[in-house]
Simulated assay, not measured.
Amino acid sequence: MTGFFHETAFCGSDDEFLAIAVPFVEGGLRAGQPTLIACAEKNTALLRGALSDDDAVTYLPGADQYARPADAIASYRDIFGGLAKAGATQIRTIGDVPHPGYGVPWDWWGRYENAANQAYAEFPLWGLCPYDTRITPPEVLADVARTHEYIATAAGEHLPNPDFGNGLLLGRPVPDVLEQGAPRVSLVNPTPAAVREAVHAAIAGTRLAEDSAHDVVYAASEIVTNGLSHGVAPVRFRLWADDSRVVVTVTDQGRGPADPLAGLMPTAATRSAGLGLWILHRTCDYVSMARDEDGFTVRVSVGGSDQAA
């Protein structure tokens, strides 16, 4: 197999994972192909114990590589571009994409899996994304099937996936626990300047670090600007906060962006609004873009228990 291949595997046991992953890695090593592993700790340990030539593999810490989807894309594109420039005609990767089974919200990672079909298509990449069916929710498995063109099996097959279909994948909206209370700020069709002023006042008593406070103000202003410029009125802004964390939502009545890469990487069309979305995807702790009966909502979260006073 040469060219770009985005493949998944559904594993119901550790043995099944190894039956798929070990031949994949060793096949790349035999062919002299750069081979990278960015798995969670458990799968990394399984592979280290099973591989016959462990030293020839490049290990990327999974938690660092998959900290944020936009960061993962930027990092991988740098790596793949460097390897291709150095003469690699095929690159192999195997990585554990975060999901609720690892305690991580899925929707922006679901968008990542969809965006990968464009973000990495220019590289000679064969990427394998295994999912453990013991811990992966059914709705996540359904999204995974939609976003991978091929499926690997423990029998050594690499099969075309009949469920694969490109197109925008927006996550299912999952309200933050802070949204169970009344918002500190609720505005309809506000100007970006009014939002910045309201956010400054609302977070003044929190323990957010200075950089995090700046990120909240920037994100709120940027999302409202996008809603007013590209959405359908009314545009509703809301903010919730506790001592160390802030959640912002902006809802309009439009359909949301038509580009699967929106916010996940800079493109030729991101000089204005899209560039701002990309920046907040690389600074906020969580970003979701979803639609439901209330409209299209962008949700961001910034901060946590480790924030300084």
Rank of each mutant, 00 (worst) to 15 (best):
A88H: 02
F10K: 01
R77E: 06
Q33T: 07
L46E: 13
A9R: 09
F4H: 07
P23I: 15
G110S: 08
R77K: 10
A84Y: 03
W106C: 09
F17G: 13
F4Y: 03
G87L: 15
A88N: 01
F24T: 00
T8W: 09
I79D: 08
P69Y: 06
N114D: 08
R48F: 00
G95H: 04
Q90M: 12
D53L: 12
P105H: 08
V57D: 00
A56K: 05
N114H: 11
P61R: 11
V57I: 11
R111Y: 03
D53S: 12
D54H: 05
L46M: 07
P34W: 13
K85R: 08
S75Q: 14
L60N: 01
A72K: 00
H6R: 09
C39K: 09
Y112L: 07
D96R: 02
D64Y: 10
D96A: 09
L51H: 00
A84H: 08
A31D: 09
V104C: 02
P100C: 15
I37W: 01
A88L: 10
Y76W: 11
G3T: 04
V25R: 02
F5L: 15
V104D: 03
P61N: 14
A74W: 04
L36Q: 01
A86E: 11
I73G: 03
A74Y: 02
F10M: 10
D96M: 08
P105D: 08
K85H: 06
C11V: 14
A67S: 11
D78Y: 06
E41R: 04
V97F: 00
I20Y: 02
L46Q: 04
I91T: 00
A45W: 03
C39Y: 04
A63P: 13
T93L: 15
I20D: 04
F5W: 12
E26N: 01
L51P: 01
T44F: 02
Y112D: 04
Y66Q: 00
D15R: 15
Y59V: 01
G49L: 12
